[in-house]
Design a protein around this nucleic acid. Structure first.
Length: 459
RNA sequence: GUCUCCAUCGUCUAGCGGUUAGGACACAACCCUUUCACGGUUGAAACACGGGUUCGAUUCCCGUUGGAGAUGCCA
């Protein structure tokens, strides 16, 4: 059985890079009818925070990436230490007594010489236990070519002298990520490790641990990183790229996932890919090797496509939820029953649920729109007189339109003469949903009071 | 610095030795229309550079350049 895992460190909100890694892991597991595990890597006591664990979980739930199993890495610490001691006993690891100051000196030395930093391995062959604090280091092979067979990156090799004898147990006795992740993966029988390309170098090290443990190697797939618009690695410091931030902005989760999926993975020319299709089509082979830049514009565009595919009821529910979260005064059921039918028309003009909701509230909320127009179309007396006495009939949008057109014709006016004025009066904007949509929803009082206010304004 | 990886329109990408180099976003024009948007039509826009291999390279190989990642007793 295929088992994948997503293993975020709860040191910040889930950002789009992590979200995509999670999505790929989930999709791959689903595609193969396997399991997707979530492992919270909370071993960095200083930086790990429960609030981040919660926000990561909230993000994944929002994206509807459910897991078969969840674990918290700090619960397995004893197991990791046990393995470290085993490696120590079997001679694959050793106690290193080098002080931090010493290490720092050596690091500077390497820098001067223009080499990778490899500490002096002074204690590598000392078996006797010494006085003083020590860290446990893993013995990397010497003078070998190390190779990873990566599904995405292909065959990647490195000379073992480029890699340090890395710490698996800190001076304080706690295991490091390099060890913990491997042990947990091994015990969870993870078959495919799909993670960011920034872990590639770690893989050479982790592979050696696995070999020392006589364990099977998982299949590795290192996916290219997503870069920000400047082309650099995404950092948790960029709050705007947090998943929850997009949720807040009114991005639909499936649109979000669709966008993320297409960032680095493709299926011919397909752009809009449903969850179902994604599960059916997803594979590791079609993941590109080059890193991609995050393009917010395209995310919004994808979102607007998803929004337009929603039904009236679904749109209403989205707006309702948004308004509730934003603590807007809720619109009454009677008005809603009218708004619903024109929701798709408003949705077609907006990119996010947030924009949609705000439009709905601007147009149909209890307050009059603010007249922030840039252009005041000059109004002539004839038009003004018409608007002063005209009141839309009660009826369907079509009936309202027909009626208005007829009345205009009687006065030798055209729709063009009055359209912009009505629009500005009703919405306070040059851009708005269809006139008759607006007239259909607004009550006679709302209509006339807005018209009156407008006419006062332009007179 | 050293190591590793990457390189097709501005962006995301298709392409897997022979194509008028395709699609999407964004952009421009036109059509539709009560405006905008949607939709439709069209347009502008790319194989980083230099060597090979080959009858033929965007595609394979090697350099150069550019970019990214790693280089933690973080994960």
């Amino acid at each position: 059985m295929i088992i994948t895992r997503f293993s975020p460190a709860p040191t910040g909100d889930l950002h789009i890079g992590g979200a995509r890694t999670a999505l790929f892991n989930w999709l791959f597991a689903r595609h193969h009818n396997g399991e997707f595990h979530l492992r919270i890597e909370n071993t960095d006591l200083q930086r790990s925070k429960d609030e981040f664990t919660n926000s990561i979980i909230e993000s994944l739930k929002w994206m509807e990436l459910n897991w078969n199993h969840i674990s918290y890495q700090n619960e397995n610490l004893n197991e990791h230490v046990k393995i470290a001691n085993m490696l120590l006993a079997s001679g694959y690891a050793y106690r290193c007594y080098t002080s931090e100051e010493d290490l720092e000196k050596q690091r500077e030395q390497s820098k001067k010489l223009g080499k990778v930093f490899i500490h002096d391995r002074k204690w590598r062959n000392v078996k006797e236990v010494q006085e003083g604090p020590y860290a446990v280091r893993f013995k990397m092979p010497l003078n070998q070519t190390l190779t990873i067979n990566d599904v995405v990156q292909g065959k990647v090799s490195i000379q073992s002298d480029q890699l340090d004898d890395f710490v698996i147990l800190r001076r304080n006795g706690s295991p490091t990520y390099l060890l913990s992740a491997v042990v947990d993966d091994m015990n969870a029988k993870v078959t495919h490790v799909i993670r960011g390309n920034d872990h590639l170098t770690n893989t050479f090290k982790q592979q050696e641990i696995l070999k020392a443990l006589n364990s099977n190697l998982p299949i590795y797939a290192h996916i290219p990183l997503i870069h920000n618009c400047e082309g650099a690695k995404l950092s948790k410091r960029h709050g705007a790229l947090s998943v929850l931030e997009y949720k807040k902005q009114g991005i639909l989760p499936m649109a979000f996932c669709n966008y993320l999926l297409r960032l680095g993975w493709s299926h011919g020319n397909d752009e809009i890919i449903s969850r179902e299709q994604a599960i059916k089509w997803f594979n590791l082979e079609n993941i590109g090797k080059a890193s991609a830049r995050f393009d917010e514009e395209k995310l919004y565009s994808t979102n607007s496509i998803y929004m337009r595919s929603l039904t009236e009821t679904e749109l209403r529910d989205e707006v309702f939820t948004f308004a509730k979260n934003m603590k807007y005064n809720l619109i009454n059921d009677e008005t809603w029953s009218k708004i619903s039918s024109i929701l798709p028309s408003i949705a077609a003009r907006t990119k996010t649920i947030k924009e949609l909701s705000n439009d709905v509230y601007d147009f149909f909320g209890s307050e009059l729109p603010k007249y922030n127009y840039d252009v005041v179309k000059p109004i002539n007396t004839k038009v003004k007189n018409f608007l002063m006495k005209y009141v839309p009939i009660k009826g369907s949008k079509e009936e309202i339109e027909l009626n208005l057109r007829n009345k205009l014709m009687n006065e030798s006016l055209s729709l063009k003469d009055v359209a912009l004025h009505i629009r500005l009066a009703l919405t306070g904007r040059k851009v708005s949903p269809g006139l008759f949509d607006m007239m259909f929803v607004l009550s006679e009082y709302e209509y006339t009071s807005r018209i009156k206010a407008w006419l006062k304004k332009v007179s």
